[in-house]
């Protein structure tokens, strides 16, 4: 095995917080395979809550488009491994302290 193997591929994690909601993107992590990605997702992004549904998708398996991406020449990340899905906007007024 060559040395590139010591970095696991990137996965995108989608979580359905409760029934009736869509799965939403919560973040990314590294895992060697799908099973490990799900396990890591439970450890990293939830408290292993049993009622929570998780999707783990390899980042390089996601087809993505972006409204501003008129010309592939100008999309520096389109030829990278680390292609991320379109993210969703979040509210601005974040509580703190």
């Amino acid at each position: 095995m060559s040395e590139i193997l010591d970095e696991w591929p990137l996965y995108e994690i989608f979580v359905r917080g409760r029934r009736g909601l869509n799965h939403v993107h919560v973040g990314s992590l590294h895992a060697a395979d799908d099973e490990m990605a799900l396990r890591h997702a439970r450890d990293v992004y939830t408290r292993r809550n049993e009622g929570v549904s998780i999707w783990a998708v390899r980042s390089d398996a996601i087809a993505a488009s972006s409204p501003d991406e008129k010309d592939p020449l100008f999309a520096p990340s389109c030829d990278k491994v680390y292609r991320h899905p379109t993210f969703y906007d979040i509210p601005e007024d974040v509580p703190h302290m």
């Binding site: 979580v15 917080g17 409760r18 909601l21 939403v24 993107h25 969703y88 906007d89 979040i90 509210p91």
Partner: peptide, 8 residues
């Protein structure tokens, strides 16, 4: 439904 953090 669509905000990534609402459900959380």
């Amino acid at each position: 439904h669509d905000s990534a953090y609402d459900g959380l």
